[in-house]
Design a protein around this nucleic acid. Structure first.
Lengths: 148, 148
DNA sequence: ATTTTATTGTTAGTATACTAACGAGACTTC
DNA sequence: GAAGTCTCGTTAGTATACTAACAATAAAAT
């Protein structure tokens, strides 16, 4: 307790930024983003792809629900859907059963884009985990899901 | 090969968003961000904290080098340093040895803030990994560093 | 010594990602 | 059926995070 080490740690010298989860997570997110835009070009951003893929998976749904399914709050999903519509990938129609709702759906172009980019998306997932051994990749994904 | 499953996968139906690394990473990043602002309040953002902690760790350095050490590009680190200065945590002086450079350093207030928030920062790192077993936490951090 | 190259910091533009507040519609409850 | 409550989408504001282009300075190459 009276050692130098104790004095040291009492002065918070043991906080090393490069050891903190948050800092590491941010960097890996950045790396993934770089891989993503390398592979996808300027066609779609990661969040736009997420919304596109989720729409392809489930079909039609409301804007806010799409946000929930893709982990975006209402303000963020609005911008993403706006840009998908602007670029011809999606379209909205007002819901006859609920005056507040828009029904968001893919256009034919959006579906074509999805089909075309699925292999690219897979390759990005692979590239992101390239530095790990096969066993480690499985374990990493398991831990990610546990942390979600 | 001629089974329904093969037909299915040929039409890219096996792409499930919730299984992709990038999507999972984004969500965990979000979770960490929420924990961070819960614990830190509005005082500092994660990137501001990263810059503050790195400055506390290494002392004085140029703005761009600080960016490299905290994984931010030149445009991002500029905004972060601007806000640290605005809030009284840091200050800059022009470098007499290099007319292009600013020497960024913590103010006394910045150092006090750092010392005060170190325990909070530790608690955020702990809370982020709360869902994992002790062994899994170590393994997760190891894999993160390998992926960086 | 001059030219080229590299680095430093700035600016403008776009896209997440959050908070907070808001109006409109739908649902509950009394 | 009127009041309160919830949900839906919008808007404004702030903070990352990137690209691209730019001017100023410094270092290297010729």
């Amino acid at each position: 307790m009276s050692s130098q080490r104790a004095t040291h740690s009492a002065r918070s010298a043991t906080y090393v930024l490069d050891e903190q989860v948050g800092f590491l997570l941010r960097q890996i997110n950045q790396r993934h983003g770089a891989l993503f835009s390398d592979a996808m070009g300027n066609e779609l951003t990661p969040t736009q792809w997420a919304a596109l893929a989720k729409l392809a998976e489930i079909g039609v749904c409301s804007q806010n629900q799409l946000g929930r399914l893709t982990a975006m709050d209402v303000a963020t999903i609005k911008g993403v859907v706006d840009r998908l519509i602007r670029d011809g990938h999606a379209e909205t129609h007002s819901d006859p059963e609920d005056g507040r709702r828009f029904r968001v759906a893919l256009t034919d172009q959006g579906r074509e884009t999805f089909e075309r980019l699925v292999p690219v998306a897979f390759s990005i997932s692979v590239a992101t985990l390239e530095a790990l051994l096969p066993k480690e990749r499985v374990e990493f994904l398991r831990l990610l899901k546990k942390l979600r």
